[in-house]
Design a protein around this nucleic acid. Structure first.
Lengths: 128, 128
DNA sequence: CCTTGACCTTCCAGTTACTGGAAACCCCAT
DNA sequence: ATGGGGTTTCCAGTAACTGGAAGGTCAAGG
């Protein structure tokens, strides 16, 4: 299969797939004409990567997870550790975003939003 | 005041302050020796920027907000609009992150995390 | 006067994970 | 042979800094 077919089947842009090859996540074969040739294993890996990325894992996490996936002698503890650390990063980000949302929605609510210049949003930004 | 003093007082890295000058957010004066000289207005602007960034506004939003802040004839509706759009982006991000967290915490909970290879996390990534 | 250390300056490169675009090659159908 | 749709590589740009190198400045101490 060529890159376009794979792009459709994995729902990843062809650009992204080439990028994943560039950084060594996949190693598709090459046809005589230079075109990439994807086999089932490439397809599986890309689907795996797509799902891992959708869960927010970094590319480096993905590399680790893919290596663990292919290592039949892995310890599930290692996988769990990667996921736990990622989860912790997400929880932290969530707290940050929730705090931002709370402040922002207060400010937006407090602002008249008319054509007068007085604005609690700017006031807050200016005075802390 | 020199950049180091301002960095302490605004709690922004000196690097960041130079960067903000580079991209035209501030225009500190210069001393005969080439050192940046910050006045009260610069200090206020940087504090404003620090708070806006802490609320997650993009640099371009900050530029807009700063312009509105300095425009005595602004309409608060314009400020509110910027904040509302930003709030919407945050809400969306929150939903994404919450979904990730839910899935991830399920997976982490389901994984034994021992030295056996069987792992629901990898299984999920591999099979969707 | 000299040195030392803490400042400050500019400039360049690297970060994350792609994305857009140009120039050129390949393949198939008319 | 020509047109359209694939594909290739390579280069640049994104957001918002951050790190580091090479070098100028300044005040204090000997």
């Amino acid at each position: 299969m060529n890159i376009g077919d794979i792009a459709k089947r994995t729902d990843l842009p062809a650009k992204t797939i080439r990028y994943y090859e560039d950084i060594g996540l996949i190693r598709p074969a090459r046809d005589a004409n230079g075109y990439r040739v994807f086999r089932e294993t490439d397809l599986h890996k890309l689907a795996f990567l797509g799902r891992a990325r959708a869960l927010g894992f970094t590319i480096e996490d993905c590399r680790t997870l893919l290596a663990l996936y292919e290592d039949e002698t892995r310890a599930s503890a290692d996988v769990r550790q990667v996921a736990k650390e990622h989860l912790a990063r997400i929880e932290e980000k969530l707290l940050q975003l929730q705090a931002m949302r709370d402040t922002l929605s207060d400010l937006v609510r407090a602002c008249a939003g008319d054509n007068r210049p007085d604005c609690p949003i700017l006031k807050d930004l200016a005075e802390g």
